[in-house]
């Protein structure tokens, strides 16, 4: 996050840490601005600053920019395993991209990515918001229970994904057993093309609820209690309070949460790969999974189209990323 990270980052993954990363950052720039105006020219302190930042600058160039550049390089050449070893891949320009766009997997991956991302974040958000409002009302054990809600988020993704695989197993899974007790027929959750995407989406929603709960709960904490007191004096019930106070006041935090959720869900590989490897066929293949499968998932690595798909994915993530930065900047201004 997914720890993400969230975070989080993260983690997930994983993702809270990821959320924190998204919400803390821009603050530091503020105190820097006036001081910068005072010192002009490269002073001794400026050299010290560069010295302290140097490891990071080197790190970003060597371990971020260079791999990303190699990735672009991969996508405009025709890299086979042999060319990879010998280093004489043929330059093909945008051919790999053209191939990706005209591939029969492309429309499926597009639809799956949209469905997976959209359904995941809508349900994560709705559940996270409902729980945040519920936990805010404060009752016996509420803080303990809220802490326990974080558990799914800190488990390694492979652990949660394999647990879900076993729970959704056609013959021996607990889910089918419970459904069977209600007289329903066996569902081949992970092996039927009709339900594979649904299954990984359900698991991913479960993984994302803690992240949404944490961020939205902290957003709720910032709404002053007096607002609620005043409105209950006016006779507003809880439902009314939610729609006329909580929801509008939580709008900025909600937007950030949704956008971060979107960016992180686009990237998801682990959960889907471990549960279905994108199958059966392409039934649960998203762009991230497609890229991973082409490069590493089969015995025949095909790096060039994989890199092309990856770069398309970066572009999509960046569009929403910039939207997120824009929103955040506007919030700081207001």
């Amino acid at each position: 996050m997914t720890s993400t990270p969230a975070t989080v980052g993260t983690r997930g993954t994983h993702p809270g840490p990821r959320g924190a990363a998204g919400t803390v950052p821009a603050a530091p720039a503020a105190p820097a601005a006036p001081a910068r105006r005072r010192h002009r020219g490269p002073s001794a302190s400026q050299w010290a600053a560069v010295g302290f930042a140097a490891p990071l600058l080197v790190y970003l160039v060597v371990f971020y920019a260079y791999p990303l550049w190699r990735n672009i390089d991969l996508s405009v050449h025709d890299y086979t395993i042999r060319a990879f070893v010998q280093g004489n891949a043929e330059f093909v320009g945008f051919e790999n991209y053209a191939e990706v766009f005209s591939s029969s997997t492309f429309p499926t991956a597009l639809v799956n990515t949209v469905l997976f991302t959209f359904v995941s974040i809508v349900f994560q958000f709705a559940a996270g918001l409902a729980l945040a409002v519920f936990f805010r009302s404060g009752f016996r054990l509420s803080s303990t229970l809220r802490a326990m809600f974080l558990v799914p988020w800190l488990l390694p993704l492979i652990v949660s994904a394999s647990t879900w695989s076993w729970m959704l197993n056609s013959d021996n899974g607990i889910v089918n057993s419970v459904l069977g007790a209600f007289g329903l027929e066996q569902i081949n959750w992970l092996t039927s093309p009709d339900t594979a995407l649904l299954s990984v989406t359900i698991a991913n929603i479960w993984l994302g609820i803690p992240f949404n709960l944490v961020i939205l709960y902290s957003g709720l904490q910032n709404i002053p209690g007096e607002v609620y007191e005043a409105s209950s004096l006016d006779g507003a019930g809880p439902w009314r309070q939610f729609w006329s106070i909580t929801f509008p006041l939580l709008r900025p935090v909600s937007l950030i949460t949704l956008l971060l959720g979107l960016i992180y869900t686009l990237k998801v590989v682990d959960v889907i790969w471990i549960m279905t490897t994108g199958g059966p066929g392409d039934a649960s293949t998203t762009f991230a999974i497609w890229s991973y499968r082409e490069a590493f998932g089969t015995g025949q690595p095909d790096f060039s189209p994989a890199a092309a798909v990856g770069n398309i994915l970066i572009l999509i993530a960046l569009v929403f990323g910039f939207l997120h930065l824009q929103l955040q900047r506007r919030q700081e201004a207001s």
Binding site: P67, L68, N71, L74, S291, A295, A317
Partner: peptide, 16 residues
Amino acid sequence: AQMVPAVVMAMGFYAV
């Protein structure tokens, strides 16, 4: 940098 998908980084790192 935080928005770059890990799978893309993985490919870049693999090549490097």
